[in-house]
Design a binder for these strands. Structure first.
Lengths: 353, 353
DNA sequence: CTGAAAGCGCTTACAG
DNA sequence: CTGAAAGCGCTTACAG
């Protein structure tokens, strides 16, 4: 059986078994006339056009997608917080929509994160570009994408090296600003809970924290430092450890907002009020920060803009531009709400000044 | 200038300006040989294959997408809560991935929700099907989709009629179960905050609430009822109104979790403890319910399964099946956490039994 | 393994 | 406005 051309593809994935010639025959016109209707060209009588259009619709014959507005960008997410993922998606979508491009969403189960199995189905779809919001993007990933000619941008990379262009935010500056805020309020014993020790993002925030202390001449006390996954439970448990110290901190900087909510819980269990007895700072500024009591002071990561920037970057790469930067870091901002206040003159704690 | 065929489209949206014939010339072979390589056919020498593949890669010549695995499903979201939107997306994606289909994400700004402007760009992409998570899907929408031969399924429809097949959850049963839980704890004065009065979902929940009261022989007190948008602020303000009544409720059923968080705030301002002085029940079970203090008792909507069901439904429609049901309602479940407890014997309130 | 020839489906330029 | 003819890009079947 001979089937030349690629006509089948052009008629949509599940409908339309008729060729232009067959539609033409049904309409009692020639193939060129059907072709004109299909492309919205002039030079077709109104009644003819109507008849042909009715037949095209009836048989699910899909108008060809205009060149260049084909498929679109793909965002790959691993098991991350939903409210963050959606903000990133919205940022990507806004940029893509302006270019008439679709945005695809792929959810990678945690077990696959480190591997390559998500790559092939993605490349089969021939996206203009891919934005990976998964940890563990490796040179193997990069090579596969490069071979396929599909640009790849990673978001908030946690690895030690960036095999691909990447977009993140200034964790160091954010942590610095948050720590200075606590120092300005008068805190001197500040606990810090970071994300997992291996993550570069954790390190950047910890370094910003230490830089603020150093600049203020406040010694860094190793005993006030903890690290663990970016989860509520770890914030709660590590927070409880810090509060149980003989000389507990008057404020705690957290690796993210979820950990901060966990510290809220630890404070509650310890019978401490926030911010009166303990100041707490988060990181990320997810939407729920405004709905807890007290509303959480935190460092805002501009997730929507991060997504938009990644989209612009991957589109530039698709246009053949070489990236001027391998890593773009967008600014973070301190959002002061009600979880931070000057430390109480706690008689248990000797004032250091 | 003559440009026959559709070759341009087949070569990917932004790369590949070479035809098969040109690649063939560069490789020093004939077009048929390039064609074979492109389709993974046998009968090409290994060295020839390698040479051609290198050239194809180099010029970004994309392998044609296999018939039937073309584009995919599109999800259209309006400005809803991110953590809910992402759960729906994940459910859709899981079903789509099993069929090798992509999932597109479109974010509709609130101003467009009621209108049709999101339809055309969507249809241009020729999706297999569309899942609309926006309020205000009308017959006008349905007609446009029908004309294009693209099936449309609405999620949690809020309108009075369902112009399209739809998936939701059993709001009536969920509210009934939650109210019975409060009645079983001994509450008799139960306040209720519903979503916007016009929403059918609000009505279903209110009816379930009243059915539980009626069954238990507890009179419904209109003065304990309020309605407003599904937002934190409205929960807070309407909750404050209820708590300021001369004979305030001992428990409040909310239209959703955000309103419940608002009621938490109102209780705090009024100096009431939850659940000791006031029981609170939410609706939705977003991930943050476990992270507030106390963790919120709520009615779980299975958003991920709702998305998956909608995906299966739209795929069945695309396969030409007629839906057996116009509206599928998935089950809700009461999740009892720590925001509900027996009412205190408040001396201000005369015990009704 | 390779490619000349034939063929397919579509579009374009142009004659009527 | 319409379509026969020419042409394009690709693929297939087959000869070598």
């Amino acid at each position: 059986m001979i089937e030349g051309g690629r006509s089948r593809r052009l008629r949509g994935p599940r409908r339309g078994d008729l060729s232009v010639a067959e539609i033409a025959e049904l309409a009692g016109v020639s193939p060129p006339t059907v072709s004109k209707v299909l492309h919205g060209r002039t030079g077709v009588g109104e009644s003819t056009r109507q008849r042909v259009e009715a037949l095209l619709r009836e048989h699910g014959f899909r108008r060809a997608v205009p060149t260049g507005s084909g498929y679109g960008l793909e965002v790959v997410c691993s098991n991350m917080l939903g409210s963050i993922a959606i903000e990133i998606m919205r940022g990507v979508e806004q940029v893509a929509a302006a270019r008439q491009l679709a945005v695809g969403f792929t959810d990678v189960r945690s077990c696959d994160t480190a591997g390559l199995p998500w790559v092939e189905p993605l490349l089969l779809r021939q996206p203009v570009g891919v934005i990976a919001v998964v940890s563990g993007v490796t040179v193997a990933h990069r090579d596969l994408f490069e071979a396929a000619g599909v640009p790849l941008v990673a978001l908030d990379p946690t690895g030690d090296v960036h095999p691909t262009p990447a977009v993140g935010s200034t964790g160091w500056s954010g942590a610095l600003a948050a720590t200075r805020h606590l120092l300005d309020l008068g805190h001197r014993r500040i606990g810090v809970i970071t994300g997992p020790a291996g993550f570069l993002a954790s390190r950047a925030r910890l370094d910003g924290f230490r830089a603020a202390l150093d600049t203020a001449g406040v010694p860094f006390d190793e005993r006030l430092m903890r690290d663990g996954p970016f989860l509520f439970e770890h914030g709660r448990d590590l927070g409880a450890e810090l509060l149980a110290l003989p000389d507990p901190p008057t404020a705690i900087m957290c690796g993210n907002d979820l950990q901060a909510f966990g510290v809220y819980e630890a404070a509650r269990i310890a019978g401490l009020r926030i911010p009166d007895d303990l100041s707490v700072v988060g990181f990320d500024d997810i939407e729920h920060c405004a709905w807890v009591a007290p509303p959480l002071t935190t460092v805002r990561q501009p997730f929507s803009e991060i997504g938009a920037t990644a989209a612009r970057m991957v589109l530039a790469l698709a246009d053949g531009e070489r990236p001027s930067e391998r890593l773009v870091e967008l600014g973070t901002t301190l959002v002061v709400r009600d979880s931070t206040a000057p430390p109480r003159r706690n008689p248990r704690i000797r004032s250091p000044w």
